[in-house]
Write a protein that binds this DNA or RNA. Structure first.
Lengths: 346, 346
DNA sequence: GCGGCCGAATGATTCGTTTCAGGCCGCCAC
DNA sequence: GTGGCGGCCTGAAACGAATCATTCGGCCGC
């Protein structure tokens, strides 16, 4: 007895469509790609056959022939960070304009995962890779580029012109944040952020240091509290550590390396209403994510044009892939957004 | 004068590797896929050649041969909603266990974009599609399924067993939320959510209605305020409309269809401290995203096991694709999380 | 009536990988 | 000495769409 045929796995190919419409495969391909080159009656016949058979193009075959895909790879540090989803949105918008797609990879601040995505994207022969790189593995990116895949750095610059890049000046951002704290009367400032392998963190801290150095005020100190990641959880841990200190030993202002951290810090400080923000401690974050404005205490932050960064990154990638321009560096300026969490002590 | 050779677009294939290592292409493929079947010395030679030439597998060719890809498509309503990024994380985890990848598509509550992603995924011959469908275009999904792509519904059930699905009982969730509001003494309840094309919204409203009907209290009313989307912005607009009403005309409790909306409503109500939450109006959201706990007024919400939903969805997809089991429906139960935004009037 | 031309359609070939039926060789058992 | 076996390797045949040099047929102009 023959086994029951479970499921008719119908794989309809151009050949089948061609047969059904009594034309050659070449003509089917033309209908698909240059319908104006085919006689209207034929187009109609082929289209009907496609609909009837439920033909769906096989992208793998297309790509194999074309040599490259119509997708763009984007590797970000943390998808759960609204800043990066905004970047992704911007990238998607520009990609859609060019009829392309964005594949989103999440390195989760983890070198191995970052590497896995890079491998994947290279194997997929994506048109380009946009990456917010974790550490300084530029040689690797260079190798990828040398093998023919365009690479654009997101939120990261590199001194020589070896890559196109889109970034925001994080040193200026850090400086803006801390100058603001000093201007509103704070003196014992703490920077919370990490790991120090991440460039953004280092730059923002650098900016903070410069603001302190440049301050036209006395007795300004800067304490650095390193965290293991840039998440709400890490922020909460850091905040709890501060809450447990003697009141005299606490900073009177905190600059968190991003809003996620800042939200965690805020939660920890306010737990059981133990520490008043901004009365006792002022708090400023970075990125100005949507939720910052809706926090327990509406949070001051440094705004970056997230969607625009993504949009521009894809733009540069397309330009470079076209060989149209030389590599290009775009740098946006951050902007201070003042809310209640840094208002002066009443 | 010959034009300068701009860039040596080197496309290294298995054939080149084979030549370099003096073996056949079949052997190179074996080294790549079943190294244990190849003599150690040969493996070493081939591996060296791969490294030297910088060979990178061409996924398109692999896929073409295999007939299907090692990716899973996931279409969500809104990437900016942390609930969905959590679902995506869960899905990624399960996919990674199976050596597969998740492609994330964002329909943005837009039918066209949803359709575009479905087309794309089908052309890519993904192993399966997980979708949180926008409206009731089941026939379309059925067609996709009939053409051989496994489809799993996420956060959506369907009466007959025509699809595997993972969902949370939103009617129960809506009921939980409103019962809680009634239990804490609220009477004039407003439901904020929309568009009504989205099933989750309708079900949560349905649950709300049931809770009102079942209430063991007098004078309970339910007003429905429809929004255009489930975003912070839409919530803010709805909240502003309420703030502008005469105090006597305002509800004393609001149930928002998700936390994003709720955050927007909260922002609007508290603007200039005009309306006290929960004193004047209690507020409860849905999803229990991380930021809910850190809101101006820590927000009560209905918790769903987001990551688990994603994980399970991939799991069901893999099972169904293996033909291992019949289609399966998994339903999780939501959970009430009480915070300050619904505490009783002091 | 014929050469020339043009739009339309053809179909063999290509992309890079995996698979699979064989082939070769050395070794063991009889 | 021969048959059989297993380990290792080979190379041709797919997979499905796109390309492009050809061919076909009809029409115009002379």
């Amino acid at each position: 007895m023959a086994p029951i045929e479970e499921e008719e796995r119908m794989t309809v190919s151009v050949r089948d469509v061609a047969a059904a419409a009594s034309v050659s495969v070449g003509t089917v391909s033309n209908v698909l790609n240059r319908p104006d080159k085919v006689a209207p009656a034929t187009v109609a016949r082929v289209t009907a056959a496609i609909a009837e058979l439920g033909f769906v193009r096989n992208d793998a075959a297309r790509q194999l022939r074309a040599g490259h895909s119509r997708s763009i790879g984007l590797v970000v540090l943390d998808v759960r960070n609204p800043f990066f989803t905004d970047v992704a949105r911007g990238a998607e918008d520009r990609a859609a304009e060019a009829g392309m797609t964005v594949l989103l990879g999440n390195s989760d601040e983890n070198t191995d995962r970052e590497g896995a995505y890079l491998d994947l994207f290279e194997e997929q022969r994506v048109a380009g890779v946009l990456i917010s790189p974790l550490a300084d593995d530029l040689p690797r990116l260079q190798r990828i580029r040398d093998r023919g895949t365009t690479v654009v750095l997101v939120d990261r610059e590199v001194a020589d012109q070896s890559f196109s890049s889109v970034a925001v000046d994080d040193v200026v951002g850090g400086s803006l944040a801390v100058s603001h704290l000093i201007d509103t009367g704070r003196r014992r400032i703490a920077f919370i952020g990490g790991p120090m392998g991440i460039r953004q963190v280092v730059d923002r801290l650098d900016g903070a240091r410069r603001a302190v150095a440049a301050a036209d005020a006395e007795g300004v100190s800067l304490e650095v509290i390193e965290t293991e990641s840039l998440t709400v959880l890490a922020g909460r841990a850091a905040g709890e550590a501060i809450r447990e200190r003697a009141a005299s030993d606490r900073p009177d202002a905190i600059f968190a390396a991003n809003d996620l951290l800042a939200m965690g810090v805020l939660q920890a400080l306010m737990m059981q209403g133990s520490i008043d923000v901004p009365g006792e401690i002022a708090l400023i974050g970075y990125d100005d994510i949507d939720f910052a404005a809706a926090a327990v205490v509406p949070m001051s932050s440094i705004r970056q044009p997230a969607a625009l960064i993504g949009y521009t990154a894809v733009d540069l990638m397309l330009k470079e892939a076209d060989g149209e321009t030389a590599r290009e560096r775009v740098v946006f300026q951050p902007e201070l957004v003042v809310r209640e969490s840094t208002s002066s002590r009443s």
